[in-house]
Design a protein around this nucleic acid. Sequence first.
DNA 1: TAAATGTTGTTATAACAACAACAACAAGTG
DNA 2: CACTTGTTGTTGTTGTTATAACAACATTTA
Lengths: 257, 257
Amino acid sequence: MADSPENFADTIESLKSLGLTKYEALVYIALLKVEGASATEIHEISGVPRASVYPVLDRLVQKSLVTVSHSTPRRYNAAPPDEGIERLLRDIREGADRAREALIAIYEKRSGPDRGSQELIWSIHGDENIRTRIADLALHATESIVAVSSFPFLKRSLLPLLEKTGPDMSVVIITDHWEGKTRDSVTVRLLPAAIHNAKPLSMRDTAGMFIFDQKKALVLMGPEKGPLTALYSESPGFISFFLRYFTFIEEIAGDAP
Amino acid sequence: MADSPENFADTIESLKSLGLTKYEALVYIALLKVEGASATEIHEISGVPRASVYPVLDRLVQKSLVTVSHSTPRRYNAAPPDEGIERLLRDIREGADRAREALIAIYEKRSGPDRGSQELIWSIHGDENIRTRIADLALHATESIVAVSSFPFLKRSLLPLLEKTGPDMSVVIITDHWEGKTRDSVTVRLLPAAIHNAKPLSMRDTAGMFIFDQKKALVLMGPEKGPLTALYSESPGFISFFLRYFTFIEEIAGDAP
DNA sequence: TAAATGTTGTTATAACAACAACAACAAGTG
DNA sequence: CACTTGTTGTTGTTGTTATAACAACATTTA
């Protein structure tokens, strides 16, 4: 568990993310090991300088992570880990809830020139961020979705969402292979295997193209290795380029079995 | 919402607890107000020095709170508050979960002299910490609980737990007044009103005494105002003192209606 | 078209705050 | 008296804030 140096360092870092200083974390952990320890014992177990242990303990008592017996020498007990962590986390969670409300209020009255959105090309980094954006776009699409992507990526990004799209939605998917059933409104085309790896937008897991309502496009352009990257734009030029590319791909794709 | 200075400061502090620096928080909030802002605009809205905005934005992009369009000038968009807060909070929560497991492993192999626990008197501060301790003690008690306390405090500390105690548990409660039904194993006695305010352990909300299994005692000794404080001990001397005090109180208490 | 001006992006430096680390001393205890 | 405990002050380190300066680029002006 926390025996190895990496795990121990991770525990310290996590406690610091929860608002403790390094010394506070070390002292709390030391106290979890021994019941009723004195400041000198805590110093010996934790490695925190003895003179520093006192103010650290005072702060931990203030944070209700430690209880004190005013004996001579003073002795201290740690709150059990469940309680301790929950206490720290709850404060942060409550603050986060308040911040979320405040920020939503700000976000909802965004103002100023709706500038650049429709002409700019945005970089999105990370598999999860990209999938979140795809999900958002799919759920807000009203007329059509076209997608060119590998089946694995489709499976973990777009496909689960097709259950939730409206009945008037037209969906066309071009992919490298297909499993499972499709709804009537979903058309699936297969690219011949020879085409997969011969084009810029090959069917490797890290490439793909999604167009929503013929107005919003997201293109996976990640490197073969490393974090996934996508470009997103509502620029008519960008859209029209990829719509043409899609039309070309569609002509050489075959029906799915 | 975040319009008033106190709320704004609270939002900043909460974002800082979530791991952002002050500048990062200010920039993120500014970006929530305007879509597609340039660095200079962010500087104007947020008050963060223009030269500092750039590295701050880089870090926010790294944290996936902001997306960038590599236009000239570069333009930035904020992730919606829901997503942003959740992203920050999730990292902390996951770290907290790992830390909890690691700390429980440590706590469960506590070693060393079981020193002082049975002889020391421990200070517990705060209403909630005290009630948590009372709950823990009540749930682990196997034979008897005796309590002298005001009804309001009993109602929010011990009474909800009596539903969960074992059938062989003997419970005796002395209080200032009583409402509701009692289980057969619970004996309630009432102190005459004249006694309430004439003793050190008066029936004000901030005073009380709880003894579990005749081995563990918790005494509320809080000031009239300010945070509640309690002493807890398993010291035989401490226990016997309060058991004698309890016996005296019991002799002058009358049956509850 | 060239020069002047303004904007953008980057880097370096100084100041500040908080924490870590250490030294020293007084008070209390055995 | 020696040792332990508790407290305080100082120094060093780190990260953030705040500012200055400069180069490169873009736009405007003559």
